[in-house]
């Protein structure tokens, strides 16, 4: 049960990352790899503020804001200084490695003795359960874990709802169109570059928020924690898209959340079955590769098989 709960909690936290990646890759169609850096930045900023005694919600928000600044920088590099998308992301991501070390002052910061955003939920559940463990679907689970899950669920629900509404407003509709057809949205009076910067800012703020929550969940922030996150996010986006076929903003968001949780569950199971944790990123990369290539390949193979079958039938006929 702890395994499933852990997968759910991490899944919910990382679904913020997935939504950020979805926003950049699918809505803006911007190949943004700032994510690897902005996740760590969010974690680092939140962790340092927590250690200094800042209120957890403020530290978490600051982490999100820091991520937003990173996204803004990438956006400006691309739109203002005409640097390629990918390179803009690489530059910011690389620079952030040093920034993150500067922010934390060392390569990792422990959060075991600080306050956490899950504290209010923790107090609530402790009072309710009358101890430090409670029954969930017949399983005895530590209150601290249940509190974290509850908190993350609340944050996720709030963000998901907010985004769902935002994307169907006049502004949100224009943002989506800017990613879909830049020429069209310019002709309708919106500067697509401004939209790109704004969208990247939002996307990376979500990623920063995921980083801040992740640090508080695992009890430390580490300068390495963002490495490969872009691929994890992408894998989750792809799984989510397989789960929901027709893409309206609401369904896509729901797909991103479900995709992330499913992906985390798959990983938890794979690790249980003895997958070496060191191989995790290789396996994820292979998975994304397969998900990107197989649908097209499968179609080609099917067409070929059909052709062969037809030929054989043709020869068999008198």
């Amino acid at each position: 049960m702890t395994l499933v709960m852990g997968a759910f909690t991490i899944g919910l936290i990382l679904s913020l990352l997935t939504i950020g990646v979805w926003l950049a890759f699918r809505v803006l169609r911007f190949t943004d790899i700032t994510v690897d850096g902005s996740l760590t930045l969010g974690a680092a900023v939140a962790a340092v503020l927590l250690v200094r005694g800042a209120p957890p919600w403020a530290a978490t928000l600051a982490g999100a804001a820091a991520g937003g600044v990173a996204g803004f920088t990438t956006g400006m590099l691309h739109t203002r200084f005409k640097i390629q998308e990918l390179l803009s992301g690489i530059l910011v991501m690389t620079a952030l490695y040093s920034v993150n070390l500067r922010v934390m002052g060392r390569s990792n910061v422990s959060l075991l003795s600080t306050k956490s955003i899950a504290d209010p939920a923790n107090r609530l559940l402790t009072a309710w359960a009358g101890g430090d463990s409670l029954l969930l679907f017949g399983w005895r689970v530590p209150v601290s874990e249940a509190a974290m899950l509850l908190t993350v669920l609340a944050v996720m629900a709030a963000i998901g709802l907010l985004l769902r509404v935002f994307l169907v407003t006049h502004f949100g509709t224009a943002l989506r169109a800017a990613g879909d057809n830049a020429q069209m949205i310019r002709a309708q009076g919106v500067d697509n570059r401004h939209m790109q910067v704004f969208g990247l800012c939002c996307a990376n703020a979500l990623v920063g928020l995921a980083g801040a929550l992740l640090a508080q969940y695992q009890g430390f922030a580490d300068v390495q924690m963002g490495i490969g996150m872009i691929v994890w996010g992408l894998a989750s986006v792809i799984i989510g898209e397989a789960l929901v076929s027709r893409v309206t903003p609401g369904l896509a968001l729901a797909g991103a959340v479900m995709g992330t949780i499913l992906f985390r569950l798959l990983i938890a199971i794979a690790l249980r079955w003895g997958l070496n944790p060191n191989d995790l990123k290789l396996v994820t990369a292979l998975f994304v590769f397969a998900a990107l290539v197989l649908p097209g390949q499968a179609k080609a193979w099917c067409a070929r098989a059909r052709r062969l079958a037809d030929n054989r039938k043709g020869r068999g006929a008198p």
Binding site: T169, H170, F171, T173, R176, D180, N181, M184, Q188
Partner: peptide, 24 residues
């Protein structure tokens, strides 16, 4: 915008060159 619905495209055109707020 190919990926968006006819209605969404029209909604964008209804505000051509005007400020776009947070109304639905």
């Amino acid at each position: 915008a190919a990926g968006m619905t006819v209605a969404e495209n029209l909604a964008i055109a209804m505000r051509r060159g005007q400020p776009r707020g947070l109304g639905i």
